[in-house]
């Protein structure tokens, strides 16, 4: 991955910054430059809360290049409380904590290291919220 690409994704990866349409209030993650709902190009940065629930989850035993060291890992669709659904790994989690409907929140973790001299990508993962 190029340094410029990972730099461009910093605010979304680290702070979960998406977009909100000034015209129809639709919220997007990842960010959009044009509203797919109403066609407006007046979109403003919008920081999502990072709280959501697990919609679906799988345990991955064979990973694409760059993710091998994390196998086995949990990969989930997380529905954020603002609406968007996000693809993310779960972390700091036990098998028994992983179920559909479980409340999770965002943490920042190392996602990927590109070889020995490439950038290390930090970004969002999700972890179960403490009960009570």
């Amino acid at each position: 991955m190029h340094f410029a690409r990972s730099w461009r994704q910093q605010s979304s990866n680290l702070r979960l910054v998406g977009s909100r349409c000034a015209s129809c209030d639709a919220i997007f993650f990842p960010e959009r430059i044009r509203c797919t709902g109403c066609g407006s190009s007046e979109l403003k940065d919008y920081r999502l809360s990072g709280r959501g629930t697990i919609s679906t989850v799988t345990r991955v035993f064979e990973a694409p290049r760059g993710f091998e060291s994390q196998v086995p890992y949990f990969a989930a669709l997380v529905e954020l409380e603002e609406g968007p659904i996000i693809c993310a790994m779960l972390t700091d989690v036990d098998q028994e904590d992983v179920s559909v409907g479980k409340k999770v929140s965002m943490v920042t973790r190392r996602i990927l290291a590109h070889g020995d001299d490439g950038p290390i990508i930090y970004a969002y993962k999700f972890t179960p919220e403490l009960e009570g």
């Binding site: 991955m1 799988t58 890992y73 990969a75 693809c87 996602i111 990927l112």
Partner: peptide, 15 residues
């Protein structure tokens, strides 16, 4: 947002 986070065709179909 998918491939870059460890989600490939197998993971997607597993989900």
């Amino acid at each position: 947002r998918e491939a870059g986070f460890g989600f490939g065709p197998a993971v997607a179909s597993g989900l």
